[in-house]
Design a protein around this nucleic acid. Structure first.
Length: 425
RNA sequence: CGGGCUAUGGCUCAAUUGGCUAGAGCACCUGGUUUGGGACCAGGGGACUGUGGGUUCAAGUCCCACUAGCCCGACCA
């Protein structure tokens, strides 16, 4: 398990920074913007820029940790690159005219930019440490905020101007080695991430434009009506093609399938990952070469692999919610258990405190709603926040020495004896 | 970046053809009552109506500019 980014284990709601709200932001345009704001997960700063409150940060961190574990599993080295960089690096690659670049004024005449992606940083960085075929292959990644001056930020966390992203860059001696890493390591790693996030079934491998040498890049698209992307799904093999390249293809691009174009089905989707074979696009711009076994200089072959934890958080809410609130998958829920004590009754509060300590002591993350609020308010908030398991403790349940257990994604509740509660959870 | 709409306490909204001290709900504070589906009663605090200019006896309301937000489109390495 990852030891980084540990946070306070259990929490009393009365001490939590951030609150739920009945009235919602008028400009909330999507389920994720509405529910995450209303539930006290995020607070909008400006168009496409959000604060993450404790609940939201816990979810984001859990998503990041799943991504982190899978990147570590394919041999990635975690690093952290700077958010800002001298504009000259972008001049060198010819990308200084990208219209999403935020420009900053440095001291003197120097121009700085906020990185929208990090090829311009990672390539010269790798060049400092990679000289020989003996140093290859190598992969580094970071989890960091990216800055893109989107002409139109929208849909809550789905399209931001500042957003969180994991970007990995791999370096290889040859196109064959890059291919093998891309196909045999990265695609499976991404698929594993989506499975762990609970969206494995609706997330599909999609061919898209943008490959520097492979013609097409690959996107991972989560099928969802609010998605901005249009993909054409092959129901035979489960792969898809982004609308942007439909004109160039004759059918499914899966070699083993080749289902003709007319059989593909149009669907809306959220892009939740994008991987590219950059080949020598950036190593050429920076003259990044290694010495092969015969001492000859060769261009390093590169791949890059992006996935956005903040966008994933929004996408998860889009996929997993009902009219009452969010329904978090267990793997990323801010807490495992939402303990709700009803009634301002000393005995109930004492028993709830005991239960809170007991569960926490067994390694279960608990959010205890210990407020002196009405039953209706607490239960409605529990639905809104969407923690997988809800425990209700009240005079009524204590009369039976029990606690009510209800799963957020199920309709019915069940009474469980307090002494059996650990077996149940 | 083009076209459109909007801007009023922390949030959601009112305010007659331009007219008197800018109202209400939520949230917040005090006291009381209440506790299994967003309770109730009483009292209280909080607004130079986005910014700058203009028209008028009089501007939240009309005009201009700017800024910000949202929608449609273009864009999305």
């Amino acid at each position: 398990m990852v030891e980084l980014n540990k946070f306070k284990f259990s929490m009393k709601y009365s001490q939590l920074f951030g609150k739920t709200s009945k009235s919602i932001q008028a400009d909330a345009d999507s389920a994720n913007a509405k529910l995450l704001t209303q539930g006290g997960f995020v607070a909008k700063q400006m168009a496409g820029v959000y604060n993450y409150l404790p609940l939201g940060l816990r979810v984001l961190t859990k998503i990041q940790n799943i991504v982190r574990e899978e990147m570590n599993a394919v041999g990635g080295n975690e690093i952290l690159m700077p958010a800002m960089t001298q504009e000259a690096s972008y001049v060198q690659t010819g990308r200084d005219n990208m219209d999403v670049l935020f420009h900053l004024q440095g001291r003197d005449e120097s121009e700085l930019v906020l990185n929208p992606t990090h090829e311009e940083v990672v390539t010269p960085l790798a060049q400092k440490y990679i000289f020989s075929y003996r140093d290859l292959p190598m992969a580094v990644y970071q989890i960091q905020n990216k800055f893109r001056n989107e002409p139109r930020a929208k849909s809550g966390l789905l399209r931001g101007r500042e957003f969180n992203m994991k970007d990995m860059y791999s370096f290889h001696v040859s196109q064959e080695d890059l291919d093998a890493f891309y196909n045999e390591k990265m695609i499976p790693a991404y698929e594993k991430i989506y499975q762990r996030l609970g969206i494995g079934n609706e997330t599909i491998l999609t061919s898209a434009s943008g490959g520097a040498f492979s013609r097409y890049s690959h996107e991972f698209q989560t099928l969802c009506d609010i998605g901005e992307d249009t993909v054409y799904l092959c129901e035979k093999c489960g792969q898809a093609i982004n609308k942007e390249i439909m004109e160039e293809v004759t059918g499914c691009l899966n070699d083993k399938c080749l289902n003709p174009k007319d059989n593909l089905v149009e669907r809306k989707a959220i892009e939740v990952g994008n991987i590219f074979k950059l080949a020598a696009r950036f190593s050429e711009a920076f003259d990044f070469k290694y010495a092969d076994s015969e001492g000859k200089e060769q261009l390093v072959q590169m791949g890059c692999y992006g996935i956005g934890p903040s966008r994933l958080m929004g996408a998860l809410v889009e996929v997993f919610h009902d009219d009452k609130g969010i329904i978090w998958p267990k793997s990323v829920a801010p807490y495992a258990v939402h303990l709700v004590s009803l009634g301002a009754d000393d005995n109930v509060n004492e028993e709830a405190a005991k239960l809170y300590e007991k569960l926490t002591g067994k390694g279960i993350e608990v959010l205890w709603d210990d407020r002196d609020a009405s039953a209706g308010a607490k239960l409605a908030d529990a639905d809104l926040i969407g923690i997988p398991t809800r425990l209700v403790l009240s005079k009524k349940t204590l009369a039976e020495d029990s606690v009510e257990v209800k799963e957020r994604n199920e309709k019915d509740a069940e009474m469980v004896k307090l002494s059996d509660i650990l077996k149940k959870i």
